[in-house]
Nucleic acid binder design. Structure first.
Length: 846
DNA sequence: CAGCATGTAA
DNA sequence: ACAGTTACATGCTG
């Protein structure tokens, strides 16, 4: 039996650490969902949705004999029910050779636990990645959930119902429960029935089964989206399938020349050329590839039927089919048979070899010779861009790449030029800053989400480019940082751009809201998710030591903390905790001496400035201009004198700093798991990662007995599930001996406290009186929005306010004299603000 | 081109 | 669950 564990500590207390050392425990093998209070942290593309037909299917997991203790709530604390006698979930006898089989399958909730030390682990893991959602992958135990969506993904990748049941039986230590088998049956039979097909700029729902289509046409939502004057059902010959080789693999390198002619003749024989030594004797991968190939000819039907639907309502239809009807629309693009769209001359450069997991991921996408829409999850620094580019090189049709910022658009273009032989004229950037034209029949265009989703106020030239984008058909759409797509605005892209296939890429398929599941119908199933731990063991990403440093609050700060009314003031006090400052100072000093390059993250801009100025280090935040950012970043990378930089949350995403090897977090956004993971991602591509014994460091500084403790544990959930172990450090050895430790006297700490309180007031209530003059723009904006413009206070209160604010800024500009080279730039903002305020005050007096 | 206003994400 | 904060992209204006 796996060891028992429960995620909640004593009532009202902080949830206990999931993993305190390298030893891991599965998250909920013994606890049914009903038991685990607030433990939905690892729920990704899961089954929890609005009630649907599928709930009844999922419900079958819960046998009627199993009941939650009726008095679960009446124990009075969160833990004691765990010690009540419980039903043994594994009453089923073990198979005689169970020690050869690595899997525990719970009959109650679709959860599966995999022993990493057992024989056959690798094969079982590859199988589970296909059919389940990884929930937690720690050193000794991996836990997966089998849900309708995960099964859809498995089937879309080519597994059959029989494969799944056969292999579950093969790996399981006990006989596979009948309800699990029934569940797999039921789900697989409804998947893949209907497909969404784009032809000549028109959308069709296609199926081999006319009965299913008739059923859809009777559905009010679907029928209202049908193009009315089109023929009811069209019938045509089904397309042929065949083998395919993904560029960048060894096979491809060997046979690239021959491919063009061979492709036609090559059907199944072609597949046999596949050399297995690519995988270094990993039989598991071979099994996997076999799975993918099996589905070829069996149920080949000659005819397909379809009806046309309105392209404007694609999203509505996809959502309806997937969540209401339980018949997800799959998208597969038979790009080699498409001669309506021009072929793009693009290939990977001859010497480019993609890594095995990239190939693995792509083989899921192109497993049956067509391009399936779906999502690939790879950690930061593991080469997501190259996966996207290789996909484009495989499809060889016009492609559109969407990314979140103009900066990453430029990076994508660079990568395209670096990895592929694309003609520079065939690739264009479309952002607010740059509007390159694409004249060729086929090409690659890279743009930002907002450029595509904005409807109002569009400059003339960008309207032109938009028309170009919307009017044509795209072979492939690559969605970078695909976890942003469910956002209200960004999800429009799938409606607006007509594309045959979509590939979503992300490192963190996580949102703190529950919209992440929408990606199932917006983009497609998750095709592949890499194992972070495995990649770092193999040296593809850096090994990281994670630690949470507990800093006690000083008495002054803690008593203020307890009195503070707003969460804002509280969080400010806990990030400004002098002991935390000292810990930060000590860690920076320690790591600089080791020769590390350190990044310090703070969400709070005030704290960012205060820390950075106090330690005379450069910092970057939102208002730092582009040029200044470049100067700082360049110095950080090349100048040995600049070993530490401070970043606000601009550094969370898409900042490429391969020099950085140590990361310290002093303030963060509540319990955002995505932020935590992405920050960690900043050091995963460390240049030195393959040095002997190299380790990157990730510290989270947490003020003891504050909200930070709680948030910190939430934030870590994702990384813990990826197998990272957070060490708790309560005492930094040698800190008390450090010279020049700041805030070592009572007086200094009181001064700091005063400063913090002043700050929290200027940012808080006092603001109300003088908001017209001194507020930041959002407060002003909100006031305007509500139509309530507040009367300015008396002149004296104004003057007082102004003086206070002025003092702040004046102090800032004095302090900056001590700073090194690129400093001046940092403080320009204050000057601007000062000017603005003066002007505003003047205007008011007039 | 800088600066501003607006909309949006997380 | 909610509001608040920070950052970004974009188009308009002088």
């Amino acid at each position: 039996m796996p060891p028992k564990r429960k995620g909640t500590g004593p009532a009202g207390g902080r949830p206990s650490k999931r993993v305190a050392s390298g030893v891991s425990t599965p998250k909920s093998m013994v606890s049914d969902d009903d038991y685990s209070e607030g433990d939905e942290s690892s729920e990704m593309l899961s089954e929890r949705e609005a009630p649907t037909k599928y709930d009844s299917v999922v419900k079958k997991y819960q046998p009627s004999t199993y009941q939650k203790p009726q008095n679960a709530k009446s124990y009075g604390d969160a833990a004691s029910h765990l010690f009540k006698p419980k039903r043994d979930f594994f009453s089923e006898p073990l198979k005689p050779d169970h020690h050869l089989r690595p899997l525990w399958i719970s009959p109650h909730n679709g959860k599966v636990v995999l022993e990493t030390f057992a024989q056959g682990f690798k094969q079982a893991q590859n199988f589970l990645i296909n059919i389940g959602e990884p929930q937690s992958r720690t050193t000794n135990m991996h836990e997966y959930t089998i849900s309708p969506n995960s099964l859809f993904a498995a089937i879309s990748v080519g597994l059959t119902e029989q494969d799944i049941i056969r292999d579950l039986e093969l790996f399981s230590k006990t006989k596979v429960p009948q309800n699990i088998i029934d569940f797999v049956r039921e789900v697989s039979q409804s998947f893949g029935k209907i497909r969404l097909v784009l032809k000549h700029n028109r959308y069709f729902i296609e199926s081999q089964d006319t009965a299913v289509l008739q059923r859809l046409l009777r559905d009010p939502v679907i029928s209202s989206c049908r193009v009315q004057d089109s023929e009811e059902l069209r019938t045509e010959k089904a397309a042929q399938k065949g083998g395919l080789i993904i560029p960048g693999t060894k096979d491809a390198a060997g046979v690239r020349e021959a491919v063009a002619q061979a492709q036609q003749a090559q059907k199944r024989e072609g597949d046999d050329d596949e050399s297995d030594d690519e995988y270094g004797g990993k039989e598991a991968e071979k099994d996997m590839t076999d799975f993918l190939r099996e589905e070829e000819d069996d149920d080949e039907v000659d005819q397909v039927h379809s009806f046309e639907i309105d392209g404007e309502n694609i999203q509505l239809i996809q959502e309806h089919c997937s969540t209401k009807l339980g018949l997800p629309l799959t998208e597969e693009y038979d790009f080699r048979a498409d001669d309506a769209n021009a072929t793009l001359d693009i290939d990977l450069r001859p010497n480019v070899q993609i890594r095995y997991y990239q190939e693995h991921a792509l083989s899921k996408m192109f497993g049956n010779g067509r391009a399936r829409s779906g999502i690939i999850v790879l950690p930061c620094g593991a080469g997501k861009t190259l996966v996207g580019i290789t996909a484009a090189c495989t499809v060889k049709k016009s492609a559109i790449v969407l990314c979140t910022s103009a900066m990453s658009a430029v990076q994508w273009k660079e990568e395209f030029k670096k990895w592929s032989n694309i003609n520079p004229e065939d690739i264009a950037i479309f952002t607010s800053g740059e509007k390159e034209k694409l004249n060729q029949k086929a090409g690659v265009i890279i743009c930002t989400y907002s450029m595509v989703t904005q409807n109002t106020r569009r400059a003339h030239d960008s309207k032109q480019v938009m028309d170009f984008i919307t009017s044509r058909e795209w072979g492939l759409m690559v969605l970078d940082e695909v976890h942003v797509v469910p956002a209200e605005m960004f999800r429009r892209v799938t409606n607006r751009i007509k594309t045959h296939s979509k590939l979503g890429l992300t490192a963190t398929l996580l949102r703190e809201d529950d919209k992440i599941k929408d990606l199932n119908f917006l983009i497609g199933p998750k095709l592949y998710e890499a194992n972070w731990l495995q990649l770092s063991e193999e040296g593809h990403i850096a090994r990281v030591q994670c630690a949470e440093v507990w800093c006690p609050m000083t008495t002054e700060f803690y008593s203020e903390y307890l009195q503070a009314k707003t969460t804002n003031k509280r969080s400010l006090l806990s990030t400004m905790n002098p002991r935390k400052y000292q810990a930060c100072q000590f860690l920076i000093d320690y790591h600089e001496k080791r020769g590390d390059k350190v990044i310090v993250f703070s969400d709070n801009v005030y704290a960012l400035e205060k820390y950075a100025r106090g330690m005379t280090k450069p910092f970057i935040y939102g208002d730092t201009s582009q040029r200044e950012r470049e100067i700082v970043l360049q110095n950080f990378q090349q100048n040995d004198a600049v070993s530490t930089i401070f970043l606000s949350k601009i550094g969370d995403t898409s900042l490429d700093l391969p020099e950085a090897t140590c990361l310290i977090q002093i303030s963060s956004h509540y319990g955002s798991r995505r932020q935590e993971a992405q920050r960690l991602g900043r050091i995963l591509r460390a240049k030195r990662r393959n040095d002997e014994g190299f380790n990157a460091f990730f510290y989270s500084l947490v003020s003891k007995d504050t909200n930070e403790m709680y948030y910190s544990s939430k934030r870590q959930a994702f990384l813990v599930d990826q197998g990272y172990a957070f060490k708790v450090i309560t005492h930094l050895k040698g800190m008390e001996n450090m010279k020049n430790l700041a805030y070592n006297t009572q007086q200094d700490r009181m001064d700091l406290l005063q400063d913090v309180l002043l700050q929290s007031e200027t940012a808080g209530d006092v603001e109300d009186i003088k908001d017209d003059l001194f507020s930041d723009r959002n407060v002003a904006r909100q006031k305007k929005k509500g139509g309530v413009r507040r009367q300015a206070g008396t002149l004296s209160s104004l003057a007082g306010g102004e003086d206070m604010a002025y003092m702040e800024y004046a102090r800032g500009s004095n302090a900056n004299k001590a700073l090194a080279k690129p400093r001046d730039a940092f403080f320009r903002k204050e000057d601007r603000l000062k000017e603005r305020k003066k002007k505003a005050a003047q205007a008011l007096l007039d």
